[in-house]
Write a protein that binds this DNA or RNA. Structure first.
Length: 507
RNA sequence: GGUGCGAUAGCAAAGCGGUUAUGCCCCGGAUUGCAAAUCCGGUUAGCCCAGUUCGACUCUGGGUCGCACCUCCA
């Protein structure tokens, strides 16, 4: 039985879907006016993992992750760039998709954009007005009357009095209550037509919170199972979503609220406003995308995650151990699409060793490497032997509020088992279980030999050096052989002599 | 000020009222021409102070420190 920490209850609860076997999940996605940073990467990877685990558990999942493509910052940025809102947002939506793909994040079933759901938002605001929860203020904005909604504060655990006590900014005086928030912003003359929609309250554009309420109910229904997002969205965004949705529909909105912890830099929240952020693409120039994914999943999703090069290096070393275990029992795809493992070469030479090796394509460092296997990898959960002890531990860990650090620990135990026994079954289990997390789906050799940077040796040069060294070894010229190995090591290439020949990897 | 979360070995990070977490690092052994990889073994824990208990890293209370939310933020 899956247990999920529900922010609403501040406790782990048994997960029970509204409709048998179906899960409807909504996650707050990006506001697209800039490149995604590592904090965004965490949301995408974490809820991708959640979604994968729900599917692996047999649920029929409908996953929605929205795109905010209209808001103050977007308008400001577009003006600065002297470009249209649409051009700006489309550019960063494309970039976001590149980043997400690289990280092995599966596309949500729906990726609604706020600008495409304005009619639904207007209908909802109108319903709120009918229900006595919205009013038009003197300045032309339509606001939500927070005091008229009973459970306001139930998600964030705050009372209206607490919130008022903590007010840190001057609030617009046109609001009935300082905590009221905007549903519909009246248009200003200076604004472009692109950001103006007609409404019964006059031209304007939606407030931030209404989009998620409107798109959530449009795509998932008035009442759905899971709503997720970063911990910073708990208040006010998610609190306001509840007020809007329950206020308009007069029924329960979401059963389980999930919030992921922040990525930190030097023990401080990574955020745009603090300016201490690293974009995903920046990090991917230095680290393999799967290493970043592994780094994220190695921590529990609710814990803070400190970013540093040292931690990424550590994650890389750990992931290398897992791939090394898979490499030792050659994993091949069969024509029928199943995966089989053997501990011995099928015939003659073995993939990954110099004698048989094709020189793989060197990746251009300027583009983001996209590994389709990483995205599609969890498709074959039928290959998992769920009765096997490691799989049972893995399942127990995942069912315990998505405890990926524990699940990853099981992968390492399994890797040890693979190395010790050279068991094809164990190797298949390792790959299949890791696939549930969207890990270890690439060819082991491709991972271990990847990461050629600018100015480094290319694969052909490495291969030539290895051949020279093999010749030296045959001639018993160990001094020459060791010199070549040392040179390669200094160039970041590690050699491994095995019974099947010499293999290599990039350090 | 209000509210919430956290403090685990050199670093990272989990579970658990009593029995090896796990990864990286480090040390010893096996293996290797030498290495690497791998295997076997080992060192390094539980912020402080009380309490509950036969027994606490794990529960309770009180401190201390850190972080977050109360403003846009994933």
């Amino acid at each position: 039985m899956l247990k999920i920490y529900n922010t609403l209850a501040r406790d782990k609860q048994d997960f029970k879907p509204i409709a048998p076997n179906k899960v409807r999940m909504y996650v707050c996605g990006m506001t697209v006016y800039d490149y995604c940073h590592l904090g965004h990467a965490r949301v995408m990877v974490v809820f991708d993992m959640v979604q994968r685990w729900l599917k692996a558990s047999g649920y029929d999942v409908t996953y929605v992750r929205n795109i905010t493509d209209i808001d103050d910052k977007i308008i400001k940025r577009a003006a600065e760039n002297k470009e249209s809102i649409h051009t700006l947002t489309q550019r960063f939506i494309d970039a976001m998709h590149e980043d997400a793909d690289a990280l092995g994040v599966q596309r949500p079933d729906h990726e609604p954009r706020a600008t495409q759901y304005v009619p639904q938002m207007l209908a909802m605001i109108e319903q709120l007005e009918k229900n006595g929860l919205a009013y038009k203020a003197a300045d032309g904005d339509v606001n939500y009357a927070v005091r008229k909604f009973d459970g306001y504060g139930k998600l964030s655990g705050k009372s209206l009095e607490d919130l008022r006590a903590g007010e840190r900014v001057e609030v617009a005086s046109d609001k009935n209550d300082p905590l009221d928030f905007v549903l519909w912003k009246h248009a200003k003359d200076s604004e472009a037509d692109e950001v103006k929609w007609d409404s019964k309250w006059g031209k304007g554009r939606p407030g931030w919170h209404i989009e998620c309420s409107a798109m959530g109910s449009e795509l998932l229904g008035k009442h759905f199972d899971i709503h997720g997002g970063g911990a910073d969205l708990q208040f006010p965004h998610h609190e306001n979503e509840i007020a809007q949705s329950e206020g308009a529909h007069q029924c329960s909105f979401v059963n389980y609220w999930m919030h992921n912890g922040f990525v930190r830099v030097d023990n401080e929240k990574m955020s745009k406003s603090l300016g201490n952020f690293f974009t995903i693409r920046e990090v991917l120039k230095k680290y393999d995308a799967e290493v970043v994914r592994f780094f994220i999943l190695r921590a529990h999703y609710r814990s803070p995650l400190n970013y540093s090069d040292q931690h990424l290096d550590d994650a890389k070393g750990a992931l290398t151990r897992l791939y090394t275990a898979l490499k030792s029992t050659a994993v091949r795809a069969e024509p029928d699409g199943t995966t089989s493992h053997s501990t011995k070469p099928a015939s003659g030479q073995v993939a990954g060793y110099v004698e048989a090796q094709e020189v793989s394509q060197v990746r251009s460092p300027s583009t983001i490497a996209f590994s389709p296997e990483l995205v599609e990898g969890s498709g074959r959960t039928d290959l998992i032997d769920w009765n096997e002890p490691h799989a049972q531990r893995f399942k127990a860990a995942m069912d315990d509020d998505l405890n990926t650090p524990e699940a990853v620990a099981v992968l390492f135990d399994l890797a040890n088992e693979v190395n010790r026994s050279q068991s094809a079954h164990a190797a298949a289990q390792l790959k299949a279980l890791a696939g549930v997390l969207g890990l270890l789906q690439r060819d082991a050799q491709a991972f271990l030999q990847g990461g050629a940077g600018e100015g480094g040796l290319d694969d052909a040069a490495i291969k030539a050096q290895i051949e020279a060294r093999i010749a030296a070894k045959k001639a018993k010229d160990f001094a020459a052989a060791d010199r070549i190995r040392k040179e390669l090591l200094e160039a970041g290439v590690v050699l491994e002599d095995t019974a099947q020949g010499t293999s290599w990897r990039r350090a």
